[in-house]
Design a binder for these strands. Sequence first.
DNA 1: GCTCAAAAGCTAATGCCGTTAGCCTCGGGT
DNA 2: ACCCGAGGCTAACGGCATTAGCTTTTGAGC
Lengths: 188, 188
Amino acid sequence: MARAALSAAAVVDVALRLVDEEGVGALTLAAVASRAGVATPSLYKHVRNLAELRALMSARIMDELSERIGSAVLGRSADEAVRALMTAWRDYVLAHPHRYAALGQAPEPRVAEAGERLIGIMLATLRAYDLDDTSVIHAVRCLRAAVHGFAVLEAERAFQRSEKLDETYDMLIRMVVAGLATATPPRR
Amino acid sequence: MARAALSAAAVVDVALRLVDEEGVGALTLAAVASRAGVATPSLYKHVRNLAELRALMSARIMDELSERIGSAVLGRSADEAVRALMTAWRDYVLAHPHRYAALGQAPEPRVAEAGERLIGIMLATLRAYDLDDTSVIHAVRCLRAAVHGFAVLEAERAFQRSEKLDETYDMLIRMVVAGLATATPPRR
DNA sequence: GCTCAAAAGCTAATGCCGTTAGCCTCGGGT
DNA sequence: ACCCGAGGCTAACGGCATTAGCTTTTGAGC
């Protein structure tokens, strides 16, 4: 082995800090290299190209998110678990809005791969409700849609009015919880 | 006036067609210019720069979306109107997935400006429910979150399982409709 | 019909970025 | 003591956005 200064993980670290501080638009190999104290081409020793860096970042973000949500859900079940899940999700987005936005910058297939764990957590959380196999899938998708939609919109400051977003999210949580209670397979 | 060959609107047209066919990643001034049969710098006679082009595209997309949703809601009220609104929204996304994805490429303040009309429609639609002024705002936000979240995820093919997305969306609609029925101001 | 100013096009040039090629240099294993 | 490969570097290319400055067209007013 030679100098162990940098590594793929370290590059991702630097890139994430950069995005946190300056937004997704500032993510450039030149900027990452500069922060890492290295010439731009040197990054290619650790990362295949910009696209791969984005994918690695997305995977890392998904992992962080899954971990937080996973431990938030631990020991709770049913409605309480759903509330904890949704709250933890938003807390993460509020803590790292740019990071969450970066999730949307990688081509979805790769993010999806990294997100399998999170989906697993959601599936497990919803198992408390008596839904048949296909209904759980639909329910997880609805949960994802609601939470992710809110997260994206809040992260990009799309809610303009002065009403408190905390209250809006409370309402969304109640909506989802109520919806899950009455969830039956769609008739069609 | 000189040759009226191009115009800001025409440039936006070309750009939208480009995005429809090749995705948001393909949006480049060079590509737009080539399609318009013009040299790249000529575009600057109609559009200030790439960022402005993106903003104009977003405004146009928002207008299209608002128009379709507006006419879908016409003559309906309450639950039926909400169902029509959500259905029209998704239909638009399915018809132009890349276009919908392009909405997220412009800095939100400008998209928001263009989206005021759509928010107005949603506010009007939800007036049928007996909500106080602040609750309507929260309700509109929840509706936006659910629909937009589903739209984004579907547009970027984030739903992997084989279950029918139509059925998932039915469930989401039922969830939202049920949620609106029981919407009370969050206590806190 | 002629004129001419401005609108709308063009070419050339600049600078940033991603990416590749090829070289140099450590430092750990033999 | 040697060597070899990991990990760094510089140089160079091509694509892109953007700017500067020129040329062409055209329609409005005479």
